[in-house]
Design a protein around this nucleic acid. Structure first.
Lengths: 218, 218
DNA sequence: TTTCAAAAGGGGCTTTTTCCCCTTTATTTG
DNA sequence: CAAATAAAGGGGAAAAAGCCCCTTTTGAAA
């Protein structure tokens, strides 16, 4: 029986390499290659006719992150099963990734046995949910939440720029100067993002941005 | 020749297990065991007479983090060579860890070959510095920096508590209530931490706290 | 071309933050 | 014990943040 092919996308080389070793010990799976970020993955996918069955996709990557990469895959290689693989267990991140088309969400602290099970399930069922992630999702649906609103619309460029600057020690006045806009316009962005993210202060904004990888400040 | 024994401390089971596989492929090294956090490590070290040569120590762990664990090791098992192993490449973290007695600081995105080299060097020289980390350190010395001051004195309990609450959407007045102190006292804490961390606003304080793992908000 | 909506900007106000300098109250320590 | 030191608390003011409601500009769509 032919082994299922796996590609690993993770900027932590040590982890990627180690994980490759682990996956290769599984009977039914073998790693084709591993790459450091989304851009490298796309290059590899485009130049090679060897399409993997599964992609293990990290989210936090410096160059082209997991979200962007996932979008590209959904558009261009929809037949590949993507399993997100991250340390980040925030509801928003999980939901965002699954909504983008990931077939499962694995936390890096899972037991290798479970990891093995996940690989098998995504091949057989086309989907895998860990208990912990399932619980998180349930909670989010339960709480009558509207994370949808939160993640539904992507941020505009100006808003994202503002958000990044808001995650620094600059005052709003300074941010306005930096962006060549009136302080009042900046105030408008602030107000709008506060509502969008349901936060009540700039601190809340910063925390939200960091937790959801909207800025890469850690 | 007897192999050098290695212990891995990392809460990301998948990574720990994978890394164990990698290390075991090295001729000169073998993994004794891996544990999820500092507490587990201490338990293992205390109950087993089999002392490892090297400990690979992650910093971000939920229960007992790398700093606390490092302190314990320095106190109780100073003969073990500890290599810090983290994704965090912030100057403060690196310096703090080395100051606590780590014999090297590895970033998780290093190449496995380099990782192998590091293991060997820490056995032969008792120390390993990657180029990147060395550069970071040089920069910090260069800039006439006084990160010393920053990391020199640990925070008091009240200050830490305040810091944690400052990393929420609470106002200072609310924080004062929560801590059963006068808002003026809180203002004193704020002022003191601003100076200590060299920041100019609460935003800066939050960013500093998150970047340096003083609060576990991500 | 008119219309409509979004983006940009403004007035004016309250609350919060930030800053400086000062007093009282423990807690050590010589 | 007395003196020093640190922690807790205070007054007051300027700057920044947050909030609401309003006007102008701009860029499509009808």
């Amino acid at each position: 029986m032919k082994k299922h092919s796996v590609v690993i996308v993770d900027d932590h080389l040590l982890f990627a390499q180690s994980l490759q070793g682990l996956v290769n010990t599984f009977e039914e799976f073998e790693v084709l290659y591993h790459v450091k970020n989304g851009s490298e993955l796309i290059k590899k996918l485009l130049e090679s006719e060897n399409v993997p069955d599964i992609i293990l996709l990290d989210i936090n990557m410096p160059v082209m992150n997991g979200f962007e990469t996932m979008e590209w895959i959904k558009e261009n290689r929809p037949s590949i099963q993507v399993l997100a693989l991250s340390m980040d267990d925030h509801e928003e991140t999980i939901i965002k990734m699954l909504r983008l088309g990931a077939k499962g969400y694995l936390l890096k602290d899972i037991h290798p046995e479970i990891f093995y099970k996940a690989l098998n399930e995504v091949i057989s069922n086309g989907i895998y949910y860990s208990e912990r992630v399932a619980t998180t999702l349930l909670n989010s649906l339960h709480g009558g939440n509207d994370k949808d609103v939160k993640n539904g619309k992507p941020l505009k460029d100006t808003e994202l720029m503002f958000l990044k600057l808001a995650c620094t020690e600059m005052t709003y006045k300074e941010i306005a100067q930096e962006m060549c806009l009136s302080p009042k316009t900046i105030d408008g962005y602030r107000e709008s993002l506060f509502k969008h993210f349901k936060v009540k202060s700039r601190i809340g904004l910063v925390l939200y941005a960091i937790r959801n990888n909207l800025v890469n400040s850690k």
